[in-house]
Design a protein around this nucleic acid. Structure first.
Lengths: 249, 249
DNA sequence: GCCGATTTGTCCGTATGTATC
DNA sequence: CGATACATACGGACAAATCGG
């Protein structure tokens, strides 16, 4: 169960929207109505609504109401997003998944590794390469670098199962925030050796850093996806920035 | 100037972080200190902080403080993100940009177009194809579909300049929310004819819908980027969902 | 281990402003 | 103009986590 009130309100409204009890383009009940329905304060319903707005479920209109803009997606390809383990993504997409460990070594960050990953020079790391298969098809090449002092005692068995499970359940560390960037890169020899590329000469690459609840970076990761299994979804609000003074007319 | 208090606080703190007056891994001043500094209520500073947290600038730690986790990026390639026009992206990356209009026609949404774009069947649309060049190098192929009744009187001149400027400044319509998805697709003949592909056989494709301040979709867009000019950045918070009851141990 | 001080997290009630109808 | 609805802001209360003595 959700611990907090705003979260349970958020989830209930979200369910109403996804089930189309509140259909696309309709207006949500007003804040005052929601206050009565959930018997809570205005701040609390507003918090729930703003979470829905950030996710692209609704759009508040000043003085008019809150419009539902959620539409059911069409997940034809493998949907990744957020901070998810491969396990979680695979389960969400209801696909069978296996993992093959290619490399499991240790490494000390030098200047080059540091610039690329963000780990300070000298950090002791685990260096892991894995191939992920979906329904028997090897289509993701995963590279992980973990800070050895923050994620100690990794084993090959853990790497084959789920490292995130180990971190969260065994070590009790909380994974909170990730910064990711998405690029498209030409395949390398090691991609070609390990993945079924189906003639693609590029891969979708999601790379970035992961932080724990203390705001300390403990992982650098790079996932190289075969294009046909890759789809990343996102929503964005436009913050109209006044362009200061660029002397351009 | 920012109209709202929380926004000016947000901007000032953001500036402190970007200028490294508040360096990576340091602790922000406590909420009570910020209340004094900005002479405002606690809710207001908390709102500013939570905005910074969403953007991956800081990470609040219960009972301990708020840690700065911002690091200067290394934008080697063309950075896109959010709801931006090509103009805005190009200016942010300080690159020269030109636009060539390939196609400018009208269209009525049939079943196929509707399923693909989300416009209702029968909607009258403008159909625009443009090639964008950066520093003289044609590297983005843009497809736009606009609802003719919401974005009326488009001309070729506007398409070559900036449609978003026209919408916001001339029509006075506010662009608020966009839903985007990022995929990687094989090149088509029309890509090959119009872009300098440099041997790539795939493109990074950003497609999605754009909504105005009334929560009405007025645009479907598809931007096909040559891989070496494409980089998308994002941050994500992990919401630990209790996995209900998957009978998995 | 306990206790108090500090700090962030949740929630409430209220007042005022602004946009819409 | 008044009623409704969202936006901003304030102040207060209590809870939960952390830290130092």
């Amino acid at each position: 169960m959700p611990k907090s009130k705003f979260e349970s309100i958020y989830k209930e409204l979200k369910k109403d929207i996804e089930s189309e009890k509140l259909p696309y383009q309709s207006l949500m009940p007003s804040e005052n109505q929601l206050i009565v329905r959930f018997s809570c304060s205005r701040n609390t319903v507003r918090r729930a609504i703003s979470m829905l707005a950030e996710e692209g479920y609704v759009q508040p209109m000043h003085g008019r109401g809150v419009r539902v803009i959620y539409t059911k997606g069409t997940p034809t390809s493998f949907l990744i997003g957020g901070i998810e383990s491969f396990h979680e993504s695979a389960q969400r997409n209801a696909m069978e998944h296996t993992t093959r460990l290619i490399r499991f070594t240790e490494l000390t960050a030098d200047e080059h590794v540091s610039r690329r990953t963000g780990f300070p020079v000298g950090t002791e790391l685990y260096f892991i390469q894995r191939v992920r298969s979906l329904d028997g098809d090897p289509c993701v090449f995963d590279i992980n670098l973990f800070d050895k002092t923050l994620v100690p005692n990794l084993t090959k068995e853990i790497c084959i199962h789920s490292i995130y499970d180990y971190i969260e359940q065994e070590l009790g560390m909380q994974i909170v925030m990730s910064k990711r960037q998405i690029t498209v890169e030409r395949i390398t020899q090691i991609d070609e050796d390990n993945l079924a590329l189906n003639g693609y000469d590029c891969l979708a690459v999601v790379s970035g850093q992961t932080f724990n609840s203390e705001g300390v970076m403990f992982e650098y990761t790079e996932s190289r996806h075969r294009p046909d299994y890759f789809c990343f979804q996102t929503t964005a609000l436009r913050h109209r920035e006044k362009p200061e003074d660029t002397s351009e007319m």
